Amino acid sequence: MRLVVVIATFGRKEQLARLLDHLERQERLPDEVIVSVPDETHVQLHETDRFPVSLVLGRSGLCAQRNQALEQASGRFDVVTFFDDDFIPQDDYLRLLEQAFQEHQDWAVVMGHVVKDGARTAGLRFEEGLQILAAERAQPPVELKITDHIGAYGCNMSIRAKLIGELRFDERLVLYGWQEDIDFTSQLRRFGRVVGLSTLRGVHLGLKAGRVSGERFGYSQIVNPIYLIRKGTVPASFALRLVIRNIGANILRSIWPEPYVDRRGRLRGNLTALAHVMMGRIEPEYIQSIAPSEAK
């Protein structure tokens, strides 16, 4: 099988360079890595003789950048793997992934298990991620568990390329996207299973640099799920749980917010979004009208 790794990145060129270095340790090397960035200021050129690295320049925003990479990859690969620039895969990740797709022709999308997710905390340093993976390797092998999902977690997800066709990420989910991964991969369930594998291991650092502001993110927390319900790609039961959980967390924690989360900004975004929804205004791209501030 031919396997490409796609990395869409923005404002994290040092992190990107470290990830590319780390990918050289894969037991099964990628046949190519495609890096998608708005322009060359977001990337530090990387030289390796272990796999080719190609650069795609163009529109900014996670969905737009991933779409540009898909155009570059079209027709050339059997598996397309998306890694966030702050996801660190275990060294056997791509080998086990290829094996999984070869042995299960009814699988459309495969995602791995995030051993530790810094997106839920203040974030992790690269060195911490490597230490966590080293500790994992010292443990007995993990028992394989296969779990079906509505959609995949975008920090590490892989798709059988022939099923993608003309499907693309929804560019109305602008900037950071949020739920763009579920929207995209849930549409592939009509072709096969969307599964998570316990044996595919990695650490998501959850870096805060390059993300949108608290108020913008808070707006997306409400409007994006509602938009996807109307679009028909996400069940209302799934999306409304997200909305309720996010509003509840932001209300409760805005009293004593975590230092690494702008809870009050998120709550302001939530309230603006709720007002828009009540008026029938479902516009994910509205976040571009919200003044940017420090991202948390």
Score class of each variant (00 low, 15 high):
Phe101Leu: 06
Phe101Ser: 03
Phe101Arg: 00
Gln102Asn: 10
Gln102Ser: 13
Gln102Ala: 13
Gln102Val: 12
Gln102Glu: 14
Glu103Thr: 03
Glu103Arg: 14
Glu103Gly: 05
Glu103His: 04
Glu103Leu: 09
Glu103Gln: 13
Gln105Lys: 09
Gln105Gly: 12
Gln105Asn: 10
Gln105Asp: 15
Asp106Ile: 00
Asp106Gly: 06
Asp106Cys: 01
Asp106Trp: 00
Trp107Lys: 00
Trp107Ile: 14
Ala108Gln: 00
Ala108Lys: 01
Ala108Asn: 07
Ala108Cys: 02
Val109Met: 05
Val109Phe: 07
Val109Trp: 03
Val109Arg: 00
Val109Asn: 01
Val109Tyr: 09
Val110Cys: 04
Val110Gly: 06
Val110Arg: 02
Val110Leu: 13
Met111Leu: 08
Met111Ile: 09
Met111Tyr: 07
Met111Val: 11
Met111Glu: 15
Met111Asn: 10
Gly112Met: 00
Gly112Asn: 03
Gly112Ser: 09
Gly112Asp: 06
His113Trp: 13
His113Glu: 15
His113Pro: 04
His113Ala: 11
His113Lys: 12
Val114Pro: 12
Val114Met: 08
Val114Cys: 13
Val114Glu: 12
Val115Cys: 12
Val115Gln: 13
Val115Glu: 13
Val115Tyr: 08
Val115Arg: 15
Val115His: 08
Lys116Cys: 01
Lys116Gln: 14
Asp117Val: 00
Asp117Met: 05
Gly118Met: 07
Gly118Pro: 09
Gly118Val: 03
Gly118Cys: 10
Ala119Phe: 03
Ala119Trp: 00
Ala119Tyr: 03
Ala119Met: 01
Ala119Ser: 15
Arg120Phe: 09
Arg120Leu: 15
Arg120Asp: 01
Arg120Trp: 04
Thr121Tyr: 03
Thr121Arg: 12
Thr121Leu: 11
Thr121His: 13
Ala122Cys: 09
Ala122Gln: 13
Gly123Trp: 14
Leu124Ala: 07
Leu124Cys: 10
Leu124Thr: 05
Arg125Trp: 11
Arg125Phe: 08
Arg125Gln: 13
Arg125Lys: 10
Arg125Asn: 08
Arg125Val: 02
Phe126Cys: 05
Phe126Arg: 04
Phe126Pro: 03
Phe126Gly: 02
Phe126Asn: 06
Phe126His: 13
Phe126Ala: 06
Glu128Leu: 05
Glu128Met: 07
Gly129Ser: 02
Gly129Phe: 04
Leu130Cys: 06
Leu130His: 06
Leu130Trp: 05
Leu130Ile: 12
Leu130Asn: 04
Gln131Cys: 02
Gln131Asp: 15
Gln131Pro: 01
Ile132Trp: 04
Ile132His: 09
Ile132Val: 15
Ile132Cys: 04
Leu133Tyr: 06
Leu133Gly: 08
Leu133Thr: 11
Ala134Gly: 10
Ala134Arg: 07
Ala134Ser: 14
Ala134Lys: 13
Ala135Asn: 14
Ala135Cys: 02
Ala135Gly: 05
Ala135His: 05
Ala135Gln: 15
Glu136Lys: 08
Glu136Val: 14
Glu136Trp: 10
Glu136Asn: 09
Arg137Ala: 15
Arg137Tyr: 10
Arg137Ser: 14
Arg137Met: 11
Arg137Asn: 07
Ala138Met: 12
Ala138Tyr: 00
Ala138Asn: 07
Ala138Leu: 10
Gln139Leu: 13
Gln139Cys: 01
